[in-house]
């Protein structure tokens, strides 16, 4: 069984610090890590490889330092790595990224299964998996929590839903996006990682020309969506004491929460209150 895993190197967003004075994001010194969901994708692929005597290729698009996540993947037991790196790829939205990854996968050739993490923590879009699947004309199953059964022709998986799950059978080749529930990833083997740092390691680097794309199809120039503005939501503690009888106090609190900005949870509260009012 030939398996391809798509991974991404991301800034560790849980460590993000804000500049106290300007309120802007401090990007310097932010650690780059293998995207957490992708680690589960790698583990799933390696487990399948061990069970089916398969072969796993890991692919990542990113700057040269993204070589680290490929090396880590090899430490986990992946057979070979391909780094898609070119300044032309920079600034890509998910459309341009899925074109690049799709092209690279066509270049690799035959595959039975593509596994991705559900989403990357820097963008949280969860779009790359389905977009690559559509690019390659293969079926997809997202939010996979368990691979129940797999043979040469099909795979049966448990797909997580908000209020339960469904069991889905898909023809192969197919693309799966997995969630953290699927497994507990192993820690990479130090010996395999050391070997993967050597020149003779099976990691290739491909640029735009290698996968046969023009600069207009990829990166910022090939993107259909664009970030036109960013801002850091500011917050200051209100430090307000709400007084009155219990009923009124609670009502006031819920209303204040509902009016608060920048929080989904608050908006959910707000939505509930508005209905009560209507």
């Amino acid at each position: 069984m030939d398996i391809i895993v798509l991974v991404k190197q991301v800034p560790n967003t849980t460590d993000v610090k804000l500049d106290e004075k300007t309120g802007s994001l401090i990007r310097e010194g932010l650690e780059s890590i293998l995207n957490p969901d992708d680690r589960h994708a790698l583990e799933a692929a390696v487990q399948l490889k061990e069970a089916t005597k398969g072969h796993v290729t890991v692919v990542s698009m990113g700057p040269p330092q993204a070589i680290e996540v490929l090396t880590e993947a090899i430490g986990m037991g992946v057979d070979q790595g391909i780094l898609l790196s070119d300044t032309a790829f920079a600034g890509a939205d998910t459309w341009a990224t899925s074109s690049t990854l799709g092209k690279a996968i066509q270049q690799i050739g035959k595959f039975d299964l593509i596994i991705c993490g559900r989403q990357a923590i820097d963008g949280d879009t969860a779009q790359i998996g389905p977009q690559v699947a559509d690019y390659l004309h293969v079926p997809q199953v997202t939010y996979v929590a368990e691979i129940d059964n797999i043979d040469e022709k099909s795979v049966i998986v448990k797909r997580r839903l908000e209020d339960g799950y469904e069991m889905v059978e898909s023809e192969l080749p197919a693309l799966l996006t997995v969630i953290s529930e699927i497994n507990k990833p192993r820690y990479p083997d130090v010996g395999k990682m050391i070997a993967a740092c050597h020149e003779d390691a099976s990691i290739k680097t491909w640029n735009a020309a290698d996968i046969g794309v023009t600069v207009h199809e990829v990166g910022l120039a090939g993107s259909l969506t664009h970030v036109i503005k960013t801002y850091v939501p500011k917050f200051k503690r209100q430090g307000e004491i709400i007084e009155g009888d219990t009923k009124a106090v609670v009502r006031e609190l819920i209303q204040k929460l509902g009016r608060s900005e920048g929080s989904t949870a608050c908006k959910a509260v707000a939505a509930a209150c508005r209905l009560e009012a209507s």
């Binding site: 890590i33 740092c197 020149e199 680097t205």
Partner: peptide, 18 residues
């Protein structure tokens, strides 16, 4: 040829474990 730095990578990997 692009290759990772073994010392940085091993440190990061063990640090994550720790």
């Amino acid at each position: 040829m692009i290759r990772a730095n073994a010392e940085e990578l091993i440190r990061k990997s063990i640090a994550r474990f720790v």
